[in-house]
């Protein structure tokens, strides 16, 4: 899915200086726990999250995440935006909640890029 289309679908705002031209994401994952993201997200995804600190951008960098959507109208701190600008990872904000934002993108054909893991919590 083109990132520009994703922004339209979520009535989103791009808060970084990154250009969205020809920027594509292959799938998505929604989570607030960065360890879960690191454990399960496939490369080239967009991450939907309610967490706004710089760790989210660092996680994106480590896990080859292409873009981040902050849900429920949360605005990332300037520091988070600065790192994202440096690393060229677009940050998008939307007023939708995590469930609804994920649902809209899933309905429009953006598949889950979260790999299922075996039962960890024995």
């Amino acid at each position: 899915m083109k990132l520009a289309d994703l922004v339209n679908l979520l009535d989103g705002t791009v808060v970084t200086d990154t250009s969205l031209d020809d920027y594509e994401v292959a799938g998505a994952m929604s989570a607030d726990l960065m360890s879960d993201v690191l454990a399960s997200i496939r490369p080239e995804s967009v991450l939907l999250t309610g967490l706004c600190n710089p760790q989210v951008v660092r996680t994106a960098l480590i896990a080859d995440i292409r873009a981040i959507v902050f849900i429920r109208g949360k605005n990332p701190a300037q520091e988070t935006i600065n790192i994202a600008n440096e690393e060229n990872i677009p940050l998008i904000t939307t007023n939708y909640g995590l469930y609804e934002a994920s649902g809209i993108l899933y309905r429009e054909g953006l598949q889950s890029y979260e790999t299922q893991t075996e039962d960890d919590c024995s």
Partner: peptide, 12 residues
């Protein structure tokens, strides 16, 4: 609150 400390680090 930082998104860590869920006891999954070493497992990951």
């Amino acid at each position: 609150e930082m998104g860590f400390g869920a006891g999954m680090g070493l497992v990951n």
